[in-house]
Design a protein around this nucleic acid. Structure first.
Lengths: 117, 117
DNA sequence: GAATCAGTTTGCCATATGGGAAACTATTTA
DNA sequence: TAAATAGTTTCCCATATGGCAAACTGATTC
């Protein structure tokens, strides 16, 4: 369980960083409606493929999407659990704000500063 | 209302960017427990004041915190509504994922691509 | 008035980020 | 087999980011 928490920090860093760009948020939004190949995903945007691939690799690095290549087509799909992780941090904060002392808040309090921040 | 939505994009950019750093998340977390002056806020961190001030200005730029100076002390407080805005985007996405068609989802759908992404 | 304290400004640095162009690989399709 | 398609790689560029040290301003305190 604790092991499972290691690098929660870095994980949130890359999650929020991945979401801090309109192109990447649009891709996430699009993928929530269903998997799609790279080229089709890239069509709404004005940048070239190399630039677009960098966005995809940021998203994949954050765990927000997973990709798989078959033949010459790479299919991308979203990982909704990672989105939930970002939402989770925010709702933990709201819990702190509301001065809650339920199990969730207790859990947050039990973490070391390095783990929560 | 539409006016109120303009630059939602940039707003989310700076919100998520502000949250994509452990120091800044820690400051938000700390401030949710109550307002505090700059120096006190900076104490848990190992960086110098100039570097810390940059983090504060990123947070302030995103609207996540507001500050006010009295005498030589600048007091910082969190703006929980901005946190809720980030949470809002995420839960809108979850709504899309779940294929919901309630009022919230309808609202999201009614926005232009530039506005939601 | 001198010293301290809280914050600010200015320059500097290394690295990361977001974009482009061009050349390349591997798979379909004609 | 030739051509088109879908990605990929490499190299380059401008700007942003996160940190430092040092000098500075303005408010308190001794």
């Amino acid at each position: 369980m604790v092991r499972h928490m290691v690098n929660q920090q870095t994980s949130l860093d890359s999650l929020f960083h991945a979401l801090a760009d309109p192109t990447r948020r649009a891709v996430v939004s699009r993928l929530l409606k269903g998997a799609a190949p790279v080229k089709q995903l890239s069509e709404p945007f004005e940048m070239g493929l190399p630039a677009f691939l960098k966005h995809l690799s940021v998203l994949e690095g954050s765990g927000l999407i997973h990709t798989e290549k078959q033949g010459r087509v790479r299919t991308c799909r979203v990982d909704a659990e990672r989105l939930a992780a970002a939402e989770g941090w925010l709702s933990q904060q709201r819990a702190i704000w509301h001065g809650r002392t339920d199990r969730l808040a207790d859990f947050v309090e039990s973490q070391t500063p390095e783990q929560i921040s």
